[in-house]
Nucleic acid binder design. Structure first.
Lengths: 244, 244
DNA sequence: TCAAAAGTGTTGTCCTTACACCCATGA
DNA sequence: TCATGGGTGTAAGGACAACACTTTTGA
């Protein structure tokens, strides 16, 4: 911004850039990772699934636009508290065949999954299992993969996992978040100790317990704590590469 | 991209967005962290220091534009191998008083510091000590702070530190990178063991040694290895918050 | 009484830390 | 011979992995 300006201040000297947001909205449904997708109603990629998103309006920041789109697509009344995080920006010149589109991608994590409504441009909208619905329109496969990788890394380093859980949750549910996103099983005793040993990760709800699935011993309930970072980190069992 | 399009395909229906890149180019000079800055020649912020950057051209991705700007600003002939990483995108509507500018910010790390040339729009360009030159123009203070934080976190998790070093370096120099970016002292024996115990972090240059500053025992030389991630991470001594 | 899920205990291994100490070089 | 920086050794403490085991519920 404000640097070398090839042709002075003529705002229309160049082919304009469109700026959009794309949202990788993740949730856990019936024990599996799901992603919010819309089915495109028009070309290009008519009939393909795509990430929800839309244009940044003149008075908005990308973050504001993302939150507005999230509210519109999920039908959630209050998205102010939801975890929304910028992923990265995709700007390859040919990523949209119609014109030059630069897209700021976000990840959002939801505790449970209200049914979405289809927007103006979309034929359908819904939660689809993470593994299934490829290929997506445009470069959305890559964006979604980047989002998954990013969330996986964030689980190692931060207390983000609680964003997938409702206000009160059991440690088993929290562990299930990790196992679902990472695709690996964790040792329950060790996970439990690690979480409880991290100050501010979770705080107990006194006296409360929940019967989980009707089977087994009732589990104590916890709320998300105030801490944001995990020190030391909670590393994935499979020592596989991280990008970031 | 390709989602709800309020007014069809009229590319000029809206006030256009300008898309730029901003570069936080960091290096270590005489033992201190330095950042590449340009002094603005025109309003707004004439006479203020700012991060180098410029417009993304119609045929470029943001990454390509960033690499081009880096080459132009530093005068380096070959920037293909240099470490360049997308930081995040800044899109607040009022961040440039002239028009709507969305900027994709990058971090770049350089081993040594060739003197930069001032560009067309800039009065001067140069390496300034990281702590000194505030406030910068626009929201560049925040971008620079985010870049610093990001690099600090990357040093914990990846083998990125070698990007600050020349092709052959001593372990003392590598340790100095950590100490400079983090602002903390590290225990030399432990640092040494940690680095050497990580396969692919560094590889020894057989038989080579360098007299460091003319004083002390000559140090063995190492080259950057092929590994990219640190497993397990090399945590900062001061357990202070990370953002991400 | 059994299956299922929560929760506790224990042990060995690895990593980290905080040191003490020796080595090679220039002044 | 001293200051300076490189390099090795070591013992204590913490974190983690693996596993056995107990508890509490519904069927």
């Amino acid at each position: 911004m404000g640097h070398t300006q090839p042709h002075g201040y003529d705002k229309y000297a160049y082919e304009p850039f469109a700026v959009t947001v794309d949202l990788a909205v993740l949730t856990i449904r019936s024990g599996a990772l799901h992603v919010l997708l819309v089915e495109r109603g028009q070309d290009p990629y008519a009939g393909h699934w795509a990430l929800p998103g839309g244009f940044v309006e003149p008075s908005e920041s990308a973050e504001t636009a993302a939150r507005r789109e999230l509210a519109e697509e999920t039908g959630l009344a209050d998205v102010t508290g939801l975890h929304l995080e910028q992923l990265r920006t995709y700007s390859e010149p040919d990523r949209d065949p119609r014109m030059r589109v630069v897209s700021v991608a976000f990840t959002a994590l939801l505790p449970d999954a209200p049914e979405p409504h289809a927007g103006s441009d979309a034929a359908r909208a819904g939660w689809l299992a993470y593994d299934k619905p490829r290929p997506l329109a445009f470069d959305h496969d890559r964006i979604l993969a980047d989002a998954h990788e990013h969330v996986g890394t964030q689980l190692e380093l931060t207390c983000l996992a609680t964003a997938f859980c409702p206000a009160e949750f059991t440690l088993g549910e929290l562990q299930h978040v990790y196992e679902t996103v990472w695709g690996t099983a964790l040792d329950r005793p060790n996970f439990r100790r690690k979480v409880l040993a991290t100050p501010g990760f979770v705080e107990p709800v006194p006296g409360a317990a929940r019967l989980t699935g009707g089977r087994g011993k009732p589990a104590a309930l916890y709320r998300a704590g105030t801490a944001t970072t995990l020190q030391p980190p909670l590393l994935r069992p499979n020592p596989e590469g991280r990008s970031a």
